[in-house]
Lab assay of single mutants.
Amino acid sequence: MKATFQVPSITCNHCVDKIEKFVGEIEGVSFIDVSVEKKSVVVEFDAPATQDLIKEALLDAGQEVV
C-alpha cells in the first residue's frame, strides 16, 4: 500500500531525518520519501503498518499532518 501525507511543518533536513527515523521504526514500512519542497511524505507499507500508525509517528516526530 502507498500513502501520501501533507506535512506543512517540514522545513529542513533535520525534519527529514527525524521523520525517516520515526516512520522507519514502524514494522511493515518499506519505503519513505520526504520532500521539503512539496512538504509531503510518501510511504509504502504493508501490514502491520497502517496509515494511522504512520500519522501517529509523524506527530511523535513533532510534525503537523493535514
Rank of each mutant, 00 (worst) to 15 (best):
V34E: 03
V66L: 12
V43C: 04
D46P: 01
Q63I: 14
Q6E: 09
T50C: 04
G24K: 11
A3E: 07
V34S: 03
V43K: 01
L58E: 04
K55T: 08
V7L: 08
V23I: 11
D60A: 15
G24N: 08
V29R: 00
V36N: 03
V41P: 03
E20W: 12
E25Y: 10
F22A: 13
H14Y: 09
C15P: 05
I26V: 13
V29D: 01
I54Q: 00
S40R: 12
V42C: 08
D17Y: 12
S35F: 05
L58S: 02
T11E: 08
D60N: 13
E25D: 11
T50E: 02
V36A: 05
L59S: 07
D17F: 13
M1F: 12
C15E: 11
D17R: 14
M1S: 12
V36P: 05
G28T: 01
T50L: 03
N13H: 13
K38Q: 08
K18L: 12
Q51N: 07
S30I: 12
A57H: 03
V66Y: 11
E64R: 12
F5N: 01
F31M: 10
A47W: 14
I10Q: 02
I26R: 01
G62R: 04
Q51S: 12
V16F: 05
H14F: 12
V41W: 03
V34H: 00
K21R: 11
D60I: 11
E44P: 01
L59F: 10
S9D: 06
H14L: 15
K2M: 09
V65F: 07
A47Y: 12
T4S: 07
D60F: 13
V29E: 00
C15K: 06
V34D: 01
I54V: 04
H14Q: 15
S9G: 10
A3N: 05
E64M: 12
F22Y: 10
K18V: 10
A61K: 03
A49S: 02
A3W: 13
F45I: 01
N13D: 10
I32F: 03
V16P: 05
T50N: 06
F31N: 07
F5Q: 01
A49V: 04
I19N: 01
K38N: 13
S9E: 05
D33W: 14
V7M: 06
F22T: 06
S9H: 07
T11C: 13
F5D: 03
I54P: 01
N13G: 14
K18P: 03
C12G: 14
A61D: 02
V42P: 00
E37A: 12
K55Q: 09
G24C: 08
V43A: 02
G28W: 04
S9M: 07
T4D: 05
V36L: 12
I32G: 00
G62Y: 10
G28Y: 02
T11M: 15
V34L: 03
A49G: 03
G28F: 02
V29F: 01
A57N: 02
S35E: 05
K55C: 10
L53A: 13
A47I: 09
V34T: 05
A57S: 04
H14C: 13
L53Q: 13
C15Y: 07
